[in-house]
Nucleic acid binder design. Structure first.
Lengths: 202, 202, 202, 202
DNA sequence: TATGAATGAGAGTTCATTCAT
DNA sequence: CATGAATGAACTCTCATTCAT
């Protein structure tokens, strides 16, 4: 059986994802988790603490996943494809995560905490790219530029899935469509690496 | 001299961008615009109405800009480069806009209004791509996939500018760095179109 | 007609006196003054601000009264009798005042504000005594010792009026009994001054 | 080693004295005494019960002390001097006691319990005075008036010790200053008894 | 005795909004 | 247009107390 703490976390995850942190009330969280309102403060100190616990546990899992991919053996291309695969899987299995991060990373009091979680992951990626291709240390195709683009491509599909659903009249998060998206992103990785290799050899 | 209405809009823009819609109070808006709190309701009916006015005026300007680029003469590549240029300029001149959209598009009561604004722009872009390259009507490199990626690359640089600032220890929004980003995105357009043309001819 | 602000102050005065600051709720104050709860915060910022406004207005009046007595012409004895008279009148007409001060002066976050109000009054008294009788600048019968005793005699009658009521089976705050108390205190002033004068001439 | 019960009492004494009964939380008491919150209720039924136990044990000790002085052999003057001495010692050794009593005696739900403790002590004092000097059965220098004044003089020095510290720029509770205060109070006893004896013989 | 978890009530405060002037 | 005052609902958070173990 789920612990009270977990029930609260799960309810908060859902509501923060659906409505946003500010628009979610502790009463709603309590009702959804069928728990006394005061227990939220007993277990998490306050509403902020609840969000922080949530983010921390998300990023712990995400970091594990991404590190595995990045630090595996094989070519950069192979590792990027693994990372891509893992990331898309993670986002599709934790759909509230991206929504919460998207909102809170846009500014406000939680931005710093999110930055703190993301920075080491970004740096890991940059190190991997620069190690494999020294020419990405600077310039238009620098590791930074590439990773920001890569990251943007991955999450935008999730952030705007409602809009995509409208436009394509189908569910972007169906297994089928996710497979298509993965193939597209793999193609993007291919052409990006091709471009880097061309630059590298010049 | 600025009208009261404009002063309110400007204050709201700043605060919604900085803190988010929910975390901004009408009192703060009133104080920042040196206007009586009740006047906000006189001019905009309510807080929602204020956000809607703000979004509407933003999207009106953005739509004009993007349509100009998309409907210009010339190759798709040329038009995409123009669009890229305009978009980045728009986002760098209206920094609160992206933050507001990022947050509200992630879900909640304003998502639909944002979708409604974005959908026609997306469709315009898709039509342009599909017209130029019929092979993008479906598949891994469909217009939809391409545009979502393209869009993600553009905005992610702004959404995560604070994180990028930390990592690169320089201001991502300086003219210099914006020029670099534009060149990177132009390169990405190039290699994407190259890939499409290869596919087209097969 | 009384202003809303005054109605709130009056209700707070009563309840703070009766129950104490901490034991009084803003809801009770709102109900007693037949005013919306939020108006308390509109007019006084918060509960603390309400107490401070109350204390400030009390001390303003008290200071005026006591200064008039202390700075009048005449012998010290005459002035002390005037002060005594005024003080007892003030306390009997503002019965909540002493209770509030008694409680808050005993420690806690409002003690400093009360000290700040009382200090100048005390210093005024000390100056008057020392001016009239230089021998009170130090020693067992110093102005400080005398005034602390004097002050203690005055307020203890009010602080413990309930206990006195029980013991004497009559109302200590009746006009009759207040007159007796005043005569007692006047006798105390007489014998204290007599003692000082004896010391002065030795 | 101290029992749990004692540790709780000691923590409550400190906090009730420092912050007041209402402003002290059971959590604070539990933390300060390093005891589980629920144990407070096991040992004292509730927060009220804790205060009552505290007051009861204080008054038990105080009553013993004062009775010893009042019921000793010797002149009233001698006994009053003893009482004075004991009382000041008691208050200087139990500094929280006066603060708690000062606050709770000012009104509210604990006033009655305090009155109940003080009444017999007061009556004992009155009996002693009236026995020695029959003229104090009524009038301006009645035993009641005298004892209220006497009591007020004693406690005011402790109640307002913070204010006195500010005004005199020295610690009113130092042994030296307490000795001065005791001598002052002894002088006051002297002149009061002198006045009574004059009245007695008229 | 001792404890961690749980509870219901209610605290102070803030909010968007309205109204009379 | 503009304002100060007012309002009702709801907010986060804390409290003393209880309970199962």
């Amino acid at each position: 059986m789920q612990t009270t703490r977990d029930r609260i976390l799960k309810a908060a995850d859902h509501l923060f994802g659906e409505l946003g942190f500010d628009a979610t009330t502790t009463r709603e969280i309590a009702e959804r988790s069928r728990v006394n309102k005061a227990l939220i403060h007993y277990h998490f100190r306050n509403k902020e603490g609840l969000l922080e616990s949530l983010l921390d546990s998300y990023y712990e899992e995400l970091a594990d996943t991404l590190k595995d991919a990045l630090q595996a053996a094989g070519s950069l291309r192979a590792r990027m494809l693994m990372l891509l695969d893992s990331y898309v899987d993670f986002l599709s299995h934790n759909r509230n995560f991206n929504r919460i991060v998207q909102r809170e990373a846009a500014g406000g009091k939680h931005m710093e905490r999110i930055s703190a979680h993301m920075a080491p992951l970004f740096q890991l990626g940059m190190a991997a790219v620069q190690m494999a291709y020294p020419s990405t240390r600077s310039g238009d195709m620098s590791a930074t530029q590439l990773l920001v683009s890569f990251y943007g491509m991955i999450i935008s599909y999730f952030t705007f899935n409602k809009l995509i659903a409208e436009l394509t009249v189908s569910d972007p998060l169906s297994n089928e469509n996710l497979a298509v998206r993965k193939r597209h992103l793999a193609r993007m990785v291919d052409i990006m690496i091709e471009a880097i290799e061309k630059q590298e050899s010049s």
